[in-house]
Lab assay of single mutants.
Amino acid sequence: YETDHQDYCEVCQQGGEIILCDTCPRAYHLVCLDPELDRAPEGKWSCPHCEKE
């Protein structure tokens, strides 16, 4: 299903190369994640907010 994702990072509120959560509309820079990621994850990815739930 399609979600309207943010076009900015949930953490720093800036645009650029962001990865999109497959569960919610949030988006993140790899370096803004904690722990940060070296590269975009393959397959489905859930953001830290969704992982907690």
Results as ranks from 00 to 15, higher is better:
L20M: 12
C9Y: 01
D7N: 12
G15K: 13
Q6F: 02
Y8R: 15
G43L: 04
K44Q: 12
Q6A: 06
I19H: 09
C24E: 00
H49C: 03
T23W: 02
S46Q: 14
H5D: 00
V11H: 15
V11K: 15
A40M: 12
Q6Y: 05
D7Y: 02
C12P: 01
E42T: 07
R26V: 04
L37H: 11
C50I: 02
T3S: 12
Y1E: 14
E36T: 07
E10N: 15
V31E: 06
H49Q: 11
E36G: 11
Q13F: 12
G43R: 08
P25R: 06
H5F: 07
P48K: 09
C47G: 01
G43S: 11
D7V: 10
G16S: 13
D4P: 06
Q14T: 10
E2L: 15
V31N: 04
I19A: 14
C12D: 01
V11M: 15
D38W: 04
Q6P: 04
Q13D: 04
Q14M: 11
L33V: 07
L33I: 06
P35L: 09
L20K: 13
T23L: 06
C50V: 02
I18T: 14
E10I: 13
Y8S: 11
K52F: 04
Q13E: 09
G43D: 11
C12E: 01
D38Q: 04
P35T: 11
P48C: 06
Y28F: 08
L20H: 10
Y1L: 14
R26K: 13
Y1K: 15
E42W: 03
E42R: 06
V31G: 09
C21V: 02
Q6V: 04
D22C: 06
P25M: 06
D4K: 11
E51D: 04
C32G: 02
P35W: 07
D4I: 08
G43V: 13
H5W: 07
C24I: 00
R39C: 06
C50R: 02
Y1P: 03
Y1M: 15
P41H: 04
E2D: 15
L37S: 05
P35I: 05
I18W: 08
D34K: 10
T3M: 15
H5L: 14
C24L: 02
I19K: 14
C47S: 01
Y28R: 05
L30V: 11
Q14I: 07
S46H: 02
D22W: 11
W45Q: 14
P25K: 03
L37R: 09
D22K: 10
E2Q: 15
G15P: 03
K52P: 13
D7S: 08
E36H: 08
C47D: 02
Y1C: 15
R39W: 06
P48G: 11
I18H: 13
D4N: 03
R26N: 07
L37C: 08
C24S: 02
V11N: 14
R39D: 08
P35D: 12
I18V: 05
D38E: 06
L20Y: 13
C21R: 00
D38A: 11
P41T: 10
G15V: 02
C21Q: 01
D22S: 12
C21M: 00
V11E: 15
H29Q: 00
E42S: 10
E36R: 12
V11C: 14
L20F: 12
E51M: 03
C12Y: 00
C50E: 02
S46M: 07
E2P: 09
E10G: 08
V11I: 14
A27L: 07
C50H: 05
E51K: 07
C32K: 00
L33R: 03
H49A: 07
P25H: 05
V11G: 15
G43T: 08
G16T: 15
E42K: 07
E17A: 10
T3D: 07
